[in-house]
Design a protein around this nucleic acid. Structure first.
Length: 566
RNA sequence: UGUCCUGUGGUGUAAUUGGCAACACGUCUGAUUCUGGAUCAGAAGAGUUCAGGUUCGAGACCUGACAGGACAACCA
């Protein structure tokens, strides 16, 4: 944008609350004005659209302030974590368009350091080994409204604690028989400060450290210290960690050395999407119980599922950008997401001819056996997209719903006696039709065409209300289409206390059928995007094979005719 | 009956030393179109959860309600 004088005008976009806080820190010279963030997934599931928001924020914030972002796997629980998830997470972040360079870290890389710091905290008298069972510890925790009670082991000597903790590490005790706890305040109004666990005994192999350790640090202890080790300045996370912040800071103070970057935790609202569930546990349930074909089922809100469905990285980034960053948790409408894909695909997806529910049209005055090639633009929204040739002949398929024997007033399509344009071809008039005696539906329609109305021809400018897409019968390719719809029929499937979210599974979320597509699609590659003209955006499923094409519907085109309730 | 956080059109957000509530999506008109798409023009829709207070002036500041969310895993 420019002013009359040619001066560039800064498009003033207001900063979100996170950017404001970070900017204040930078201006105040904290951490020498540096900004370094991290994205810390736990490798226990696939990334979903909610993670995409966090990724965009973590990487975007650093980029905006000239800093870097680390990828750190928060792998402190060997019982749940697997390498399969590590690989998929890396693939998804790259696909989304972000890069961590060589800064790929693991909390498990820090186990030794974390252990040494724990020893230091014990020596300072701020941690102790507790011999009680988890049930007893839970009981002593109190409730949000009543204070907890102190463990009888709370005041063991430093020497005894040191000895016990080392023996815990050496595997001398059974799983669950001892834990290391921070000694803070059993009466705190913040439950997380009531002597939280730092370490538990887990005799399980870890996906990276194998059997080297049999004690593993808890999230609160490991996460903040990992931030500190990596020189993270801003530890951005979701709102549910808000109450953890005092503990985050407490642990940090135990080991902090002057002059080093001091990470600051700031929380933002996680993404909630209507008609969608975001819980990893529940998504896993859908996979395990075979309600979907896998983590990458195109109906899943996972990034791998959305990629397969035909969502583009840009559409997801734009979506995240439009919903913004705040501390108010609400539910964003999937409509915004869908608008975002349409918007992106409209600009980049080549238009092709495809007929989902074929109805044969015979053009009675077109020479039998003749075929001609007609030129059609690849994408009218993109001047550089060029054009291609498509075959036309005496018999073509049109969409069943584009023909009505007795149409209502504003029906712009084909009906007996009416004229319509065939996209990039001719204007035709319907003269007659044949009914199928068993179905009671039209089976074939007979039309005459007007040779001079060919696109670019002398009568091409004749006004007709409707334009139909079509596919020439002899050259048509048969393909499979998978028509996807929302996985759930309720706006908040997991928002009902007494009803299981699976009750809201949409039985029509997938309809598989056959269609006819133009011959040029024979060479379409997996994940390639197209617009099936007048129908919707589709992409090629990885299941697709030469001779057995498979298309997924990403999202339908907006349809004001259907919406009018016709 | 605790502590912390949050309340702005249907939805998501904006209003940066207090100054006539803005934008996007959606909705509805109309124009245009060889996609009933896209595009363009326009309209409706909130007086900012409520009640007090400070002020010439409050969405913003103060007080008190109310509503929603988070927190009592050897999960992250």
């Amino acid at each position: 944008m420019n002013t009359a004088s040619g001066e560039p005008v800064e498009e003033k976009k207001s900063l979100n609350f996170l950017e404001q806080l970070v900017e204040e820190d930078v201006k105040a010279g904290k951490n020498n004005g540096k900004v370094h963030t991290r994205f810390p997934p736990e490798p226990n599931g696939y990334l979903h659209i909610g993670h995409a928001k966090a990724i965009c924020i973590d990487f975007g914030m650093a980029k905006d302030f000239g800093g870097k972002t680390n990828l750190r796997f928060d792998d402190t629980n060997p019982a749940k974590e697997e390498t399969e998830y590590v690989d998929s997470i890396k693939e998804d972040i790259k696909w989304l368009g972000f890069d961590w360079d060589d800064r790929e870290f693991y909390a498990s890389d820090y186990f030794e350091q974390l252990y040494n710091w724990a020893v230091k905290i014990i020596k300072a008298g701020n941690a102790y080994v507790d011999d009680q069972s988890s049930d007893t510890i839970a009981e002593q925790k109190g409730t949000p409204t009543t204070p907890g009670t102190e463990s009888p082991f709370r005041n063991r000597s430093v020497e005894e604690n040191l000895d016990l903790f080392e023996r815990m590490k050496n595997g001398e005790f059974e799983e669950g028989s001892k834990v290391l706890r921070a000694k803070i305040d059993m009466a705190s109004s913040n439950m997380h400060l009531r002597d939280p666990l730092m370490y538990r005994i887990l005799k399980k192999a870890h996906h990276r450290t194998g059997n080297k350790w049999c004690i593993y640090p808890m999230y609160d202890y490991a996460h903040g210290q990992s931030d500190y080790i990596e020189g993270i300045t801003h530890s951005l996370c979701t709102l549910e960690f808000e109450v953890h912040r005092p503990l985050y800071n407490w642990f940090l103070e135990q080991v902090y050395e002057e002059g080093k970057p001091k990470p600051r935790q700031i929380e933002f609202a996680r993404l909630n999407l209507s008609y969608t569930i975001m819980s990893k546990r529940k998504l896993l349930e859908l996979v395990k119980d075979k309600h979907v074909s896998g983590w990458d089922d195109p109906r899943m809100p996972t990034l791998s599922g959305m990629r397969r469905r035909g969502y583009t990285p840009a559409s997801i980034r734009n979506f995240v950008d439009t919903i913004g960053v705040t501390k108010t948790d609400g539910v964003s409408d999937v409509l915004l997401l869908e608008h975002s894909v349409r918007d992106d695909l409209n600009k980049i997806a080549p238009r092709v001819m495809a007929v989902l529910n074929p109805l044969k049209m015979i053009i009675t005055n077109y020479p039998e056996g003749k075929t001609e090639e007609l030129e059609t633009p690849n994408n009218p929204e993109d001047e550089n997209a060029g054009s291609r040739m498509i075959p036309f002949s005496r018999e073509i398929y049109i969409e069943q719903e584009d023909f009505m024997i007795d149409p209502p007033g504003k029906f712009f399509r084909l009906a007996p006696g009416k004229e319509v344009r065939l996209k990039s071809a001719f204007i035709v008039r319907c003269d007659d039709y044949k009914m199928n005696s068993t179905t009671g539906e039209p089976e074939e329609i007979y039309c005459s065409y007007f040779p001079e109305t060919r696109s670019g021809g002398s009568e091409a400018n004749r006004k007709v209300k409707g334009t139909l897409h079509w596919v020439s019968v002899p050259q048509a390719l048969k393909a499979e289409v998978r028509l996807y719809d929302r996985l759930f029929s309720d706006p908040e499937p997991d928002g009902h206390k007494d009803v299981d979210f699976k009750e809201f599974l949409n039985p029509d979320s997938l309809k598989v059928s056959e269609c006819y597509v133009e011959p040029g699609l024979a060479t379409a590659k997996a994940l390639e995007h197209f617009q099936f003209q007048r129908i919707g955006y589709f992409n090629v499923d990885p299941d697709s094979r030469p001779g057995k094409l498979v298309f997924n519907r990403t999202v339908a085109l907006k349809d004001s005719w259907a919406k009018a309730g016709a």
